[in-house]
Every structure is written in C-alpha cells, then in structure tokens.
C-alpha cells in the first residue's frame, strides 16, 4: 500500500468525466426515444386511437402474431346513440378525463395499471362482463358513477362512494373509459374476458326469443 500515485481508472477526475458522459449519453438517448414515443402515443395513431373511436365497437381479441390480446375497432356503435365528430369526441373524452382527475379516481383505482389498489383496474372496464349486456351497459355505467353507494357488487362490502358526479360528467367519464379501452397496451391486462358484444342476431333473422341476461345490479 505504499503507492502514492492514483491509478487513472480509480481517479477522481476520470470518474467525474465518466459521470458527466454517461449521464449525458443516457439523457440524449432518452430524449431521442421520447420524440419517437410521444409521436406514437399522440391520439390518432396506431397505438393510441383518435377520440372518435368511441363511435365504434371496441373489442379486445387474442392476436396470434403478437401472442396477446389487442384492441380491435369494430363496426359503428356510437356511444349514447350519437355519432360524434373528432372534435366533439375529444371534448367529451377530455371532460371525462378531467372528471377522473377532479374526483381522484386514481387514488382508489388503477388506470392502465397505475394508481391505487383499493378498487378494480379501469383499463378495460368498458368491456367488463359484469355490466351484463352491451345494450344496458352505457346506462348502467352512468347510473353507477352517479351514485354507486347503493350498488354493491362484492361480498366484502367495499363500496365506491358517491362523488357528486353529474349526469353530464358521468356520460363523459364513460366516453373516456370507452376510449381508454381502445389503447394498445401490449396485452395488459392479460387473459381478460370481455363482455359479449356480438350482434344479437343476423339482420334478416327475427330477434332471439330469450331476453338478455339480467344485469347483476
């Protein structure tokens, strides 16, 4: 241990330079990737669809090639029976997003898997089979959001509280949830079983006799 001269690879100045260069290089790579990523997740792209996607049926189907489920945009199936322009759809989804923020949904739920763990993940809540059938779903969701306090769905007694959501906000929130379910999340959540959205019967055939299953509300 009599050496007095510092080895270059153990010297302060070497590591100072390393610290600077490594940080700078990582930051530059990150910025490059960020440009690309931001472009790819801007609404209207392949992964994050345009807001007017809420005019369509959205499904979540297994894709052989990618080896996981992916959102599939189906035939026109407007939300609340009204086809919206892209601008109208954006306003509606935005109102819903603002509602989720102002009511703090993310401190009970997860959205795209981020948030709190006290209540179910909402990424695909639009497609949840617990809404019963696709015919009643929209209205049930609105009713539920406006006052969930008397609509318990579990054996634990864990209810969602009434958050003062107006009907307008509830509809917007449903639009937001529908839009979110169309985002390509690389297969998260895996193994999700979406609600049956097939048309009740071919157009020529008479409507089926048996009524839709009674929703569990």
């Amino acid at each position: 241990m009599s050496q007095t001269q510092t080895l270059w690879w153990a010297s302060e100045s070497f590591w100072k330079k390393m610290a600077i260069w490594i940080t700078a290089a990582s930051a530059v790579v990150l910025i490059f990737l960020t440009f690309d990523t931001v472009a790819k997740i801007t609404a209207g792209g392949k992964r994050v669809p345009a807001y007017s996607v809420i005019n369509h049926r959205i499904d979540y189907v297994f894709d052989e090639k990618r080896n996981h489920q992916v959102p599939v945009i189906g035939p026109v199936e407007p939300l609340f029976g009204k086809v919206l322009s892209e601008a109208e759809a954006k306003d509606l989804v935005s109102k819903g997003k603002l509602t989720t923020q102002a009511k703090n949904c993310m401190n009970c739920h997860t959205l795209l898997g981020n948030g709190a763990y006290f209540a179910p993940d909402l990424t695909k809540s639009w497609l949840d089979p617990a809404w019963g059938s696709k015919e009643v779903r929209e209205q049930l969701m609105v009713d539920f959001l406006m006052d969930p306090s008397d609509k318990l769905h579990n054996a634990l007694g864990r209810r969602m509280p009434k958050l003062g959501i107006t009907e307008e906000e509830a509809r917007a929130t449903v639009a937001f949830l529908k839009w979110m379910s169309a985002i390509d999340t690389n297969g998260f959540p895996a193994n999700f079983k979406p609600i049956d959205q097939a048309d009740a019967a071919p157009e020529t055939a008479p409507p089926p006799v048996e009524s839709a299953p009674v929703p569990a509300l």
Binding site: M1, S2, Q3, T4, T6, L7, W9, A10
Partner: peptide, 19 residues
Amino acid sequence: WHLCVGTHTDAPAAESVKL
C-alpha cells in the same frame, strides 16, 4: 473491489488497514 483499492491507494499510511 479493484475500484475500492484503487481509490484508497493514496491514503496516508496511518489510515490504511491491512488489506
């Protein structure tokens, strides 16, 4: 380990322990 030894080599003799 090499880094540890390397960064401590110019320590005054009083401070270094047997390594």
